[in-house]
């Protein structure tokens, strides 16, 4: 990697594992859970967050010296809201069905705590390039969890991935259904998203003992 120094590269790799925004920093859970019943929706949501975070961090970082600290929250919200409106209009134009599925959760990217959290913690104190990289890194960490949760919920819940029936047809009893396998419809319901994330946290912390909390 000649383009990025080692320090910059760390900004991307850290959020993917040991400083993951969802499982370690506990940011941005709201939207992560509600839309992960299908893999496709989680991928689209990840791309939307990637766009908003990268550009938002860049913009805030460029403006960091002219924003008065007293009204910085409103200034940040306006920047995010503008970016989210762009995402919303693009989705409505090119993927109308999907934008109906995501409904209010596109709008809720505005209050996604990851975005505000990274603005406060990083973009207000660092230069544009590093902020941009930090935004991309954190959005990728968020995307990783979203895609893992979406993968398992769609696979176990409806036996398909991205709409393709990878486990065979459940009505005609082909594939694994021939051996008596049944879809677990419960995975599609909201509570299982929470439990899936809980299990991801469990796996991650038992592999890395340093992350274990006290109580």
């Amino acid at each position: 990697m000649g383009l990025l120094s080692k320090k910059d590269l760390k900004l991307i790799t850290d959020p993917l594992a040991d400083n993951n925004p969802i499982t370690i920093q506990v940011l941005g859970i709201c939207s992560a859970l509600a839309i992960t019943a299908e893999l496709k929706a989680s991928i689209v949501m990840s791309v939307a967050v990637l766009f908003v975070m990268g550009l938002g961090n860049l913009t805030i970082s460029l403006m960091r010296n002219i924003i008065p600290s007293k009204i910085r929250i409103i200034a940040q919200l306006i920047v995010v809201a503008t970016l989210v409106i762009i995402v919303d209009l693009v989705l409505k134009a090119f993927a109308y069905e999907l934008s109906k599925t995501l409904s209010v959760f596109v709008g809720l990217i505005i209050t996604n705590c990851i975005i505000m959290g990274r603005f406060e913690a990083f973009a207000l104190a660092n230069g544009p390039l590093r902020s941009f990289i930090d935004g991309i890194g954190n959005a990728l960490g968020y995307a990783l969890i979203l895609i893992i949760v979406g993968f398992f919920r769609e696979l176990l819940g409806s036996g398909s991935l991205l709409g393709f029936k990878v486990l065979g047809d459940s009505i005609e009893k082909t594939g694994v259904y021939a051996y008596g396998y049944e879809n677990n419809g419960f995975m599609l319901l909201a509570p299982m998203a929470l439990i899936t994330v809980g299990i991801i946290i469990w796996v991650q912390r038992s592999r890395n003992e340093a992350l274990i909390e006290d109580n």
Binding site: G198, W202, E213
Partner: peptide, 10 residues
């Protein structure tokens, strides 16, 4: 131990 705090809350 790995579930303590955040995991069990979820």
């Amino acid at each position: 131990a790995p579930l303590r705090g955040l995991g069990i809350t979820f």
